[in-house]
Amino acid sequence: MRELAALYEERHLPSKSPASQRDDKSILRTIILPRLGSAKAASVRYADVEDLHRTLSQLTPYRANRVLALLSKMFSLALKWEIVTTNPAKGVRRNPEEARQRYLTAYELQRLLRQLVEHSNRTAADAVLLLLTGARRMEVLSATWAQFDLVEGVWTKPSASTKQRRLHRVPLSSPALEMLRERRADAPSSTVVFPGRDCETSITDIKRFWASVCQDAQIDGVRLHDLRHTFASTLVSDGANLPLIGSLLGHTQAQTTMRYAHLFDEPQRAAVERLGSSMMGVPGHQSN
């Protein structure tokens, strides 16, 4: 299994996003290899995988599913590489997962923005502000100045940094553009937008900063990724349709954007109420 893991890291892992690479390496080194590393890949049984998944599920059911998915992919590739003859992870039932969608309320957003604008850590604060454009965390943290046209106000995300592995070109709002122009003026020689302590490489994590800001803003239960959901919900309230929202978020499949369809309930209700009021106001109309 150690050899299979090494082959996986060498042949398949480079095709995944940086965030996925880090996650896979973490799972391999902290879970899969300590448990199965010394076993022969061809001798791993369905029962072995199921037992590992069941044990992990008692504490971290979602993480257990990620481990199962990685094992299944490894054995699927091992089949192609003619290392094994079966995939022992196939058929192991995954834990049910509920899609979690948390949206900042208008008051929460106001409190958050107040904290970010006044915060002394401008690099981390500005990174969170750029997340409010609907970008993913690693798209923001790995951003370089070469991706931005500060004249036209466009951010062109390279395929290597996007989840869909496709070039994604999006317009920037005036506040986001103003923030970026200020950062560029303050560090004209930097190649990365959000540099770390060495001023040359990008920062890699802002989780502690985020937790601190949320505490100060009195916001509970919000992840950094929920800012992306908040961006989408705000677009809905402003009248944007699903195709436009999907385009701005970089979705390649319509069903991915459909998770926001329920947010249209209130705008649709308001529309039919306006129509109903208009119809009821037509001369000669009589209600039953």
Rank of each mutant, 00 (worst) to 15 (best):
R137Q: 12
V170L: 13
V213G: 05
L180I: 00
F148R: 02
S173N: 09
W145T: 13
V151H: 11
A187V: 01
I203F: 03
L177I: 12
D186E: 15
E200A: 06
Q218L: 10
K157E: 00
Q215G: 15
W155N: 03
A176L: 07
I203M: 04
A217I: 10
M179Y: 12
T201H: 09
A160S: 10
T201V: 07
A160V: 10
C214F: 04
F194M: 04
R208M: 14
Q164G: 05
A185N: 05
Q218R: 15
D198C: 02
F194P: 13
A217Y: 07
L150C: 07
A217R: 10
P158W: 02
K163Q: 05
W210L: 03
L172T: 13
Q147L: 02
V193E: 02
T191Y: 00
W145Y: 09
P158Q: 07
S189L: 11
D186V: 07
S174T: 13
L150I: 08
R137W: 06
G221E: 05
V170S: 09
A185R: 14
A135M: 12
P195T: 10
R183W: 00
G221Y: 14
D226E: 11
R169D: 06
V154L: 10
A185D: 00
S159P: 01
R223F: 09
R223E: 03
A146T: 10
P171G: 14
L141A: 02
W145F: 01
V151E: 14
D149K: 01
D220P: 06
I206N: 08
V222T: 08
S202V: 06
R169T: 14
W210I: 02
R136V: 05
T156Q: 11
A160P: 07
G153Y: 01
S159D: 09
P171C: 08
I206C: 08
R169H: 12
E152H: 07
T201L: 10
A146W: 11
D216N: 10
H168K: 04
R169G: 02
H168S: 00
R183E: 00
Q218N: 13
H225E: 06
C214A: 10
K207D: 12
D205Q: 11
P188V: 04
Q218K: 14
S190L: 05
G196F: 03
K157I: 15
L167G: 00
T156Y: 00
G134Y: 02
E178K: 14
